[in-house]
């Protein structure tokens, strides 16, 4: 089996090469990859329609009203991607398009999320009881068109690997830009390679799935609520109050 270090290195090198170029290179790469990713999920949804059963949506409230809406409020961290919207305005050519871009991004993301969840919910009874590592991968394994087109897993894995690399590139680029502004460094290229090394080192920390889940489901969850929701709303409120005081 190939050592995990080489697989992580693959992503890190791709990220560092793209981040050392302009931000427009990142955007153009994503422009090529995004339609393929959206098409893949729509294709997966349509191709698996024969395995869907609407009755799997019941019971409607699942684990109960409290568990879904009150205790489940913390699951809003799944919408953490919305935080990227804060970083878009400085990179726009025309700031007035920001509202339109936000709306389109949110609609596309919602549709994508809805399709992904629908596939696993309508196909499998078992994922309520079983914790599956990659639910969409399980759905892909059911795809068969006659006896010729079978085993399309590798195609989807390739698409998902590329889309993950694109996501990692955007996140790394934003982190580098934030650091550059904090430290007042003009040239980003000298920051890219240390960041890549840091990314490589941190990705080697989790030694098993439990540690990864802890980072992803616990630490990231609270960071989303504190940094994205709490602090940004607090800044908005404070700025509003300051504005009102200043205008008096």
């Amino acid at each position: 089996m190939t050592n995990i270090i080489f697989i992580i290195l693959l992503f890190v090198i791709a990220v560092s090469v793209v981040c050392s170029l302009n931000f427009s290179s990142v955007v153009r790469t994503n422009l090529i990859v995004l339609p393929i990713v959206i098409f893949s999920i729509i294709f997966l949804f349509i191709a698996n329609t024969k395995n869907f059963s609407m009755e799997r949506l019941y019971p409607v409230l699942g684990n109960g009203f409290n568990s879904t809406f009150i205790a489940g409020f913390w699951n809003l961290f799944a919408f953490g991607g919305l935080s990227l919207l804060y970083f878009i305005p400085p990179n726009l050519k025309d700031y007035k398009q920001f509202k339109k871009i936000t709306l389109i991004s949110m609609i596309l993301s919602s549709v994508y999320l809805l399709l992904s969840i629908s596939i696993t919910l309508l196909m499998f009874d078992s994922f309520i009881e079983i914790d599956e590592l990659m639910p969409l991968y399980s759905a892909v394994r059911y795809l068969e068109f006659g006896t010729f087109f079978q085993r399309l897993d590798s195609v989807f894995l390739l698409i998902w690997i590329i889309s993950f690399s694109c996501y990692l590139t955007i996140i790394s680029n934003l982190c580098i830009n934030i650091f550059r502004k904090l430290t007042n460094v003009k040239n980003t290229k000298i920051i890219v390679y240390p960041f890549a090394l840091l990314l490589f080192a941190i990705s080697l920390i989790p030694t098993n799935i439990a540690t990864s889940n802890f980072f992803g489901l616990t630490i990231y969850k609270y960071m989303f609520f504190i940094l994205v929701l709490l602090i940004s709303i607090s800044i908005l409120i404070i700025a509003n109050i300051k504005n009102k005081i200043a205008s008096r």
Partner: peptide
């Protein structure tokens, strides 16, 4: 059973 589950609101009741 999957047709019967429509009559229940929560998984616990089911």
């Amino acid at each position: 059973g999957k047709y019967a589950s429509k009559h229940f609101l929560t998984t616990q009741q089911w």
